[in-house]
Design a protein around this nucleic acid. Structure first.
Lengths: 201, 201
DNA sequence: AATTATAACATACTCAGGTATGTGAAAATT
DNA sequence: AATTTTCACATACCTGAGTATGTTATAATT
């Protein structure tokens, strides 16, 4: 037990925020996102909507944050790539891990994400932020591959990046639409083979 | 003026349905989907929600039907393909027209569609109905191409179909996310080139 | 022709996400 | 130290999609 120094206001706020986050994620996992109301979450925590919306802009902001954590994780994946010597293999490995991470998040979360990101009121959706590690790293790998002559150079790296990511996203979207009715990893492995044919020099 | 024979009940219902449909689409186009409430639509027609929901399951059902019309139109497009002799060119042309149709529907409608199809409560989303013309025709063209040796046969036609359609859908989704910030036709032309590299024998 | 069923709509609700505003205590400012 | 600001949360409300339940005229059944 640590000494019970009275919490500073910021600390208290952060703690509350985390409690909301965890409780929400826990409820989502157990009862399904749309079977959990914001009031449910608050009731379980003995607080009110005021508290919730002081810490999160919306219900699906919770899901978005879970997803954003993943983006940070991409950096770790990228570092593990140095042992591979072909850019194409790096690209393949990086993508495989990205897909794995998303399949581990699960259909439910990915579905809520793809649903909320395209919602009418959603401005500047995170999914397409150019600064995301997903974009940065993919583009970097492609650029490298082009310099080393492994990847075709008749298209700019940004465009190849977009093609790749959007193709996979279409697959993910489909996976969500069908409630995870197929093996995401396996199908993306095939997709990667397919796309690599179109990308190599 | 046609004689004012009293309308049979079915006729009346159908007429009402069409009035709702047109009024809704008109309002959506002018004020934006999410700035139009079901009550707005009803008020403009001098009826109430009861009427609306007797004819449509939900607000976005209207959008879905608009989209389903398009699917019927694919057949017409498919018939115009016979003048082309290469399966790959048929595939390219068919896809181009499909994209054109969707870009003509506009970002707003496509966005509502992609949003509502992946909504938590949406069961058996139309977008992935195997019976859709989009799937049937694409798969047919691929099958032909394989028989004629123009398209690789190491993957089953269903899988190639899925890869193609999902890749394009990813692009469409991205188009919606960014509110139509790029030229859909042009970018899909590039995407098609890219994918054809991976699909030819 | 009388009865029953049903389809087209109206009325009055529920539900859940989100907002506007209030309050008290901690923190910054003087 | 006194005052002002700010932040964490509470209360009360709004909104808009969707539903449960009438009501009435038409169509089907007897």
């Amino acid at each position: 037990m640590s000494a019970k120094r009275p919490l500073t206001r910021k600390e208290k706020g952060l703690r509350t925020r985390q409690r909301i986050y965890r409780t929400a994620m826990d409820l989502f996992a157990r009862k399904g996102y749309d079977n959990v109301t914001v009031d449910d979450i608050c009731r379980k925590l003995g607080m009110t909507k005021g508290a919730f919306y002081a810490h999160f802009r919306s219900k699906d902001q919770i899901i978005l944050e879970e997803f954003m954590h993943m983006d940070r994780h991409y950096e770790v994946v990228a570092e593990s790539l140095s042992s591979l010597d072909s850019s194409l293999e790096k690209l393949r490995a990086f993508n495989r891990e990205a897909i794995r991470l998303m399949s581990e998040l699960g259909v439910t979360i990915m579905r809520v994400l793809y649903h909320s990101q395209i919602a009418p009121r959603t401005k500047d959706p995170y999914l397409v932020h150019a600064g995301r590690n997903l974009y940065r790293i993919t583009e970097q790998l492609i650029r490298e591959g082009q310099e080393r002559g492994e990847i075709r150079s008749d298209l700019p790296p940004e465009e190849l990046t977009a093609i790749l990511i959007n193709a996979f996203r279409g697959q993910l979207y489909h996976w969500c639409l069908t409630d995870g009715s197929f093996d995401l990893m396996a199908s993306c492995e095939n997709l990667m083979d397919f796309l690599l044919r179109g990308i190599r020099a």
